[in-house]
Amino acid sequence: MILSRRTRIALRAAMVAGLAVVYLPLLLVLLNSLNRDRSFAWPPAGLTTQWWVRAWQSEGARSAVLTSLQAGAGATLVALVLGTMTAFAVQRHRFFGRQTVSFLVILPIALPGIVTGIALNAAFRTVLGPAGIGFGLLTVVIGHATFCIVVVFNNVVARLRRTFPSAEEASADLGAHTFQTFRYVTFPAVRSALLAGGLLAFALSFDEIVVTTFTAGPGVQTLPVWIYANLARPNQAPVVNVVAAVLVLLSVVPVYLAQRLSADSPGGRL
């Protein structure tokens, strides 16, 4: 398709303008974390690094980060196991209800977080409550794992689609038993897909707020919940700004890792 010079220039302008709109709010977050003024008067009267020091010392922020890491690790682990099992079942077997299984895996992320959140909340209260298990970190992990399964599933299914069972058959012909074949042939083939899926699952869990709100116990505050709770407190606002800036800076890490991990699609499969 031969585009006129003017069309090309217009398209480039749209691209530049679009990226500018995408990145300016993020730059604003970085700048605001250095704003000397407590109420973020714009433009900032001066810059300071004192909020970064205060954020580093903030107990609330530290324990929230720890809780988020724990919840993310737990949810990722469960999602890796369940997502991989489902992916192998769907991709390597033909059975009645195969489509339904794929649909069931996607459902928790397709429905609004608040619906998943209050559904789990109601179920935990009626089922776990009488059993003496209250809301806590465990319920958060259960909630997060439920919607994280799909990203592991998608990554592993995509990988299995491109690897053929002939290597596994060859391994069996050479005398390896099922577990050896899995360990030495199948697992290495899907390893990077597992890493990419696990990374996405962890990021999804780390960023989640709605399901967390409805499944967390009173003492359990993940980082997003902590940020949300402290947004309205003028006293905490500068610290929240620093945490926000750190999260913006850290978003480069998973993109870099995902880029190196999976050659098939940038950033893994959503």
């Binding site: 709010p25 604003l28 977050v29 605001n32 997003p224």
Partner: peptide, 20 residues
Amino acid sequence: VAVLTPLWASYLVKAYAWRV
């Protein structure tokens, strides 16, 4: 990559930036 990276930045932080 440039389009994808903001997806990884916290949802809450982005909404908050717009509040400012």
